[in-house]
Computed example of a mutant assay.
Amino acid sequence: MSRLESGGVESVLLNYLGHFTHPEDFDIHIVTQDINDERCLQTFREAGYNIDVVTHKKKSILKNVVEVRRLLRRERFDVVHSHMTLMNFYVLFLASLTGSRLRISHSHNAFRSSNLLKLAFWSALKPLNKWFANQWFACGREAGIFLFGKHAVDSGKVTILPNAIDLGKFEYNPIARASIRKEFGIGEKDFVVGHVGRFMDQKNHKYLIDIFSSLVEKRPDSWLILVGTGELEKQIQDYVAECGLMDRVIFVGSVDNVNDYYQAMDVFALPSKFEGLPVVSIEAQAADLPVLISANVDCSCALTDNVKFTSVDLAPSVWADELLGMAGRSRGTEVQKRLQKAGYDIQTEAGRLEALYRNAGER
Rank of each mutant, 00 (worst) to 15 (best):
M1H: 12
S2V: 04
G7T: 03
V12S: 00
Y16Q: 02
T21H: 13
T43N: 09
R45W: 00
E46K: 10
G48R: 09
I51K: 08
K58S: 11
I61E: 13
N64V: 06
N64F: 12
L71Y: 06
R73D: 10
F77G: 07
D78V: 01
H83E: 02
Y90I: 11
L97F: 13
T98D: 12
S100A: 15
R101H: 08
K118D: 08
F121I: 09
A124Q: 11
K130D: 00
Q135Y: 04
G140W: 07
F146L: 05
F148M: 10
T159M: 12
L167P: 07
L167C: 08
Y172P: 11
I186A: 05
D201K: 15
I211R: 04
I211G: 01
L215Q: 04
R219K: 11
D221M: 10
D221F: 10
G228W: 05
Q237G: 15
D238C: 10
V240D: 09
L245M: 05
M246P: 02
V252Y: 14
V258N: 01
Y261W: 07
Y262A: 04
V267G: 01
P271T: 04
A286M: 03
T304A: 12
T310A: 13
M326S: 02
Q340G: 14
N359C: 11
A360N: 02
